[in-house]
Amino acid sequence: MRHAETVTFGGSGLDRAAELRSDGDALAELKANPTSRSIVLWRGKPLVCGERRDVLVRLEMAHPLLKHAVETPLFLGQEEAGAIFAHDVSSWEPETVDQEALQSFFDQSEQHHDTVPEDHVFSELRAVMSGLNARDAELAATARAIQSWHRSHRFCAICGHESARAMGGWQRDCPSCGGHHFPRTDPVVIMLITSGNKVLMGRSPGWPDGMYSLLAGFVEPGETLEAAVRREVLEEANVPVGEVRYLASQPWAFPSSLMFGCRGEALGEDIKIDPVEIEDAIWVAREEMMQAFAGQHPKLKPARKGAIAHFILRNWLADRLD
């Protein structure tokens, strides 16, 4: 697919400088270098700025906000201006926190720290991702995914002892048994299943009214992407699928997936959903989808902008899936 890497989080050519991760002296020098900068996350939300929240903030390494970080920063790589790190300041407690908003499907709450300008706020990545440039999006997604992994994998999977960060934050080592643990990425297929002029759409329980998306599911051990597409569509909607081909991929840091966008041809149109898997599935004609993207459909809402489902559907409508 010619437009594959233009998807949000599709990559910006960041030099991740993996050869420096094991060099403690080099990392220490970079942390002390006045040209180095850090992005900041609070409970997974990046610090952004601007009226449209479309710029990822880079702070000096000595900035007072970073004192809230209780762990060593993650080394993200080298930018043209210098090294770039990521600090997790989740230990900071704002004066007021809307817990209901934080747990909602679309968290629209923002948090501001008094050491930064008023327009610098922590905002949910899914709310701002489509406005970030490619480099900012890659940095934010990478940092969020790795920081989430550190929070959920504190203990050694071999012996249960608490492990420690290593390799610039890209590894955890167990001081008890010597085990080494690495960030996980879960492969997920998300598929454009078509039958003539129609596309198969589904929705999960708890989604906002009118929200539908492409069917998706995790790839199982020992399974190809093509087999996963056929199995998931059959399990969720009882629709058999013939030919399958790959379209594009997207890192999805919620919390640690790699979405493989695929296209498949349905061999039938009768739908019988598995209510354990999804709440509903429907066939949507191209004309209806165009209405939804224009915000003019009476019931159907467009897929979330920035997500690979939106990207694939938009290119399907424009006949640009080759």
Rank of each mutant, 00 (worst) to 15 (best):
A266M: 09
L41C: 05
T224L: 09
A285G: 15
W149N: 07
G206E: 10
D173Q: 10
G261L: 11
W283M: 07
E51K: 12
G160V: 07
Q99H: 09
R2S: 06
T72V: 03
Q291I: 01
N133D: 15
D107Y: 00
D98T: 02
E51R: 13
Q147V: 06
Q103T: 00
D119H: 07
D15I: 03
E269K: 15
F106D: 00
D119K: 05
H113L: 02
P205D: 01
P34A: 06
L214E: 12
A216C: 12
P117L: 04
R184A: 14
T8D: 11
E95G: 08
A309V: 01
E124I: 00
F260G: 05
S123N: 06
Q250M: 10
V276W: 08
G261K: 11
I273S: 12
E5W: 10
S163N: 05
V241L: 13
V97M: 07
G306S: 09
W42H: 07
E220H: 09
R2L: 11
D209R: 10
Q108M: 03
L41N: 05
D173I: 03
I190M: 15
A318N: 14
V241A: 11
E279Q: 15
P208I: 01
L267I: 04
L125Y: 05
T142L: 12
M259L: 15
H68G: 11
V121F: 01
V116D: 01
S90D: 04
A17D: 03
M129W: 01
N197R: 15
I158E: 15
S130I: 03
E223I: 02
M289A: 04
Y212T: 04
L27P: 12
E79A: 12
A4R: 09
S91N: 09
D136Q: 04
A69C: 06
G82E: 04
R52M: 03
W283L: 08
S148H: 07
G206K: 06
A307W: 14
D114P: 15
F105N: 00
R203W: 00
Q291W: 13
E235M: 10
S36I: 01
P183M: 06
L214C: 09
A237D: 13
L321M: 08
A318S: 13
R58K: 15
Q250K: 11
S91L: 02
A81P: 00
E100L: 02
E79G: 11
K45N: 12
V121T: 05
